[in-house]
């Protein structure tokens, strides 16, 4: 091994460490904060040494937030459950609608097909605030405000285009003759879709679902406007930690840890699919 390559290795290691520090330190610090009292957190200078406490987690799980000004009820666990429910339902609905649509866009040329697909994609880059005001009016008119149904419906703006475009790229990657061979062997179109196309596109479907799930989970503004406390996800529920007597940093940190954990675990588990699925979708979409 010569000098340059050693130097290269050192520099590379150094740069990697810097990048990792930059991205992981906040997470690490929040993790520490979640086991500290507000006093420990606000101490100057900050210290790595403290007596860990589970108080923050207890407060979140029991739903009683103790502040200097007195006890407050918070619905954090309910918010967390809402997040899980809304995100999973939205992805589920988007899969049921989006996967067959993606297949249709990938396999068949039809009038206005590209326009429809592009319109659906454009929902992704339209700012939500643009549609929120009319939406909230429609929703209160239709009785959809503050319902899971309404939220899942609006979340399709997030999930459906993602599923549609990523899975479409995946379907386009499958040689049509694989399906044709199966069809000519005596199987119906629907069975070919179920038995051949979907299993072959599974990594893409998994990646798209995961991504859609994370995007739904992270959404803030739709639920803020269109739902009230008992239907709101964690992103909105976190506002409750800003109380009259100050911000409860310990509980906020614990809440962040709890709300990030599900998506983080999912993402770690499905990393492989995510990279593969997204790069394929990007090339072919």
């Amino acid at each position: 091994m010569n000098h340059t390559s050693t130097a290269e290795r050192i520099i590379r290691g150094l740069l990697l460490t810097l990048v990792l520090l930059f991205f992981l330190f906040p997470i690490f610090w929040i993790f520490l904060m979640s086991f500290q009292t507000n006093e420990d957190i606000l101490r100057i200078p900050p210290s790595l040494f403290f007596t860990p406490t589970l108080e923050n987690y207890v407060a979140l799980i029991s739903g009683r937030l103790s502040t200097v000004a007195g006890d407050l009820d918070i619905a954090f666990m309910r918010n967390l459950w809402n997040s899980v429910l809304l995100s999973s339902l939205s992805v589920g609905v988007a899969l049921i609608l989006g996967v067959p649509a993606a297949y249709a866009f990938a396999r068949f040329k039809f009038r206005l097909g590209e326009n429809i697909a592009f319109t659906l994609l454009s929902f992704r880059f339209a700012p939500p605030l643009l549609v929120l005001l009319p939406l909230s009016l429609y929703f209160s008119e239709l009785g959809l405000s503050d319902t899971y149904l309404g939220l899942v419906w609006v979340y399709q703006l997030i999930a459906l285009p993602l599923i549609l475009w990523i899975v479409r790229g995946y379907f386009e990657d499958i040689s049509p003759d694989i399906e044709n061979a199966y069809r000519i062997d005596g199987h119906s179109w629907a069975k070919t879709f179920r038995k051949i196309a979907i299993p072959l596109a599974r990594p893409g479907i998994a990646a798209a679902s995961l991504l859609a799930f994370i995007f739904c989970w992270n959404n803030f503004v739709f639920a803020l406007v269109l739902a009230s406390a008992d239907k709101q996800p964690v992103t909105v529920g976190a506002l409750a930690f800003v109380t009259a007597s100050g911000i409860q940093y310990g509980q906020v940190a614990a809440a962040i840890v709890l709300s990030v954990t599900p998506t983080l675990l999912l993402a770690l588990y499905a990393q492989r699919y995510l990279v593969e699925g997204l790069s394929l979708g990007a090339v072919k979409g």
Partner: peptide, 18 residues
Amino acid sequence: RPAKRNVAMAFEGYSLYP
């Protein structure tokens, strides 16, 4: 539809089920 025609076909390109 193809399934009902009782026809067999050999393909030029990728057609085997992976």
